[in-house]
């Protein structure tokens, strides 16, 4: 039986990166179409706890590698370990969520396996041995159906396109394997977390974004986000100006998001921003300029001063809860 191997991601704080659950769903969709088994790989200094979490995700097996060298993620260390496992299992597909780690690691794994790769996969098509991948190009202006012709096929899955896996029975087997460790030419120095109590942008159900119209004052954006349990996003101009941290940027060149609800306040809607959010289910635009291009993609547009209406909106939403 063919094998689909999904690589799980452990965050620096030791928890599972939530996008892993979306990647598992993607892997399951692929496994069903390809008539394959779904396996997981987990690399960590100590994988035991996460392995328990993962084995109930409806997978055949969780392959764990434990080593002190695996504490901090490094592509050069992880890639040979995963490639080694793929070869050992004779896996046909290997994939991961399109997170920063997924994007950094999977191409190196693919290179090691002389395999072709599809990035940001949104859907799988076909069946059996005849599988193709749908992925975005030109910042999501084009969807391409691509076929990989190498024996092993590598992919990263866009988390927003697959639901988070909610588990399945029976529990899979946890199998430890000995990692093929290689000396790394790269040293991990440090990781500076941008602490936020809010959900991760690409994982959030609701995103509230601010643009130039905020003039750098994000208080109202943040207050509304907290009311909705939403993530905060921003336009490129706002990040470039250093008003908010870089990793909040939504757009072609920043993060691509597709939440249930996207609220854009004071964002004019440059092409590159639209590319990062136009797959959102419902889009609300609030802007003083009635001609702002953002209104062309918004389901609901409100021509108004954000500093006036955001507090009103927050109040109104708060009342709904009561």
């Amino acid at each position: 039986m063919p094998i689909v191997l999904i690589v799980a991601e452990q965050q620096p704080d030791g928890h599972l990166r939530k996008a892993t659950l979306n990647a598992i769903s993607a892997g399951r969709t692929l496994a069903e179409k390809a008539g394959a088994e779904l396996h997981l790989a987990l690399l960590s200094k100590d994988p035991s706890k996460l392995a328990e979490e993962l084995k109930v995700q409806g997978v055949k097996a969780v392959h764990t590698a434990a080593a002190p060298e695996l504490e901090h993620y490094l592509a050069e260390v992880y890639a040979p370990v995963i490639a080694g496992l793929v070869q050992e299992l004779k896996a046909d597909y290997v994939g991961m969520a399109s997170t920063a780690m997924g994007k950094d690691l999977m191409p190196r794994v693919a290179a090691r396996l002389k395999a072709a790769m599809a990035t940001d996969v949104m859907a799988f098509n076909g069946s059996g041995a005849d599988i193709s991948f749908t992925r975005p190009m030109w910042a999501g202006n084009v969807f391409a159906e691509v076929k990989l012709t190498t024996p092993v096929k590598v992919f990263s899955a866009r988390a927003t396109e697959f639901p988070a896996s909610t588990g399945g029975q029976p529990a899979g087997e946890v199998k430890a394997f000995t990692p093929k460790l290689e000396a790394s030419k790269t040293k991990f120095v440090d990781f500076k977390e941008v602490k936020s109590a809010r959900p991760e942008l690409t994982e959030a159900r609701v995103v509230v974004s601010g643009g130039r119209g905020t003039k750098g004052d994000f208080k109202e954006i943040e207050a509304l986000a907290d009311e909705l349990g939403a993530a905060v996003g921003a336009s490129r101009a706002v990040c470039d100006a250093g008003w908010v941290p870089n990793d909040l940027q939504v757009g072609q060149t920043g993060k691509v998001v597709a939440p249930q609800l996207y609220i854009a306040a004071g964002i004019s809607g440059a092409i590159q921003h639209l590319a990062g959010m136009k797959s959102s289910k419902t889009i609300v635009a609030i802007n003083k300029d009635p001609e702002a291009p953002i209104f062309q993609v918004a389901d609901y547009g409100l021509v108004a001063d954000l500093f006036k209406v955001l507090p009103e909106l927050r109040e109104a939403l708060h009342k709904l809860k009561e």
């Binding site: 990166r17 920063a100 941008v194």
Partner: peptide, 8 residues
Amino acid sequence: VDNGLATL
């Protein structure tokens, strides 16, 4: 990277 800056 996600949620911050990593230095190598």
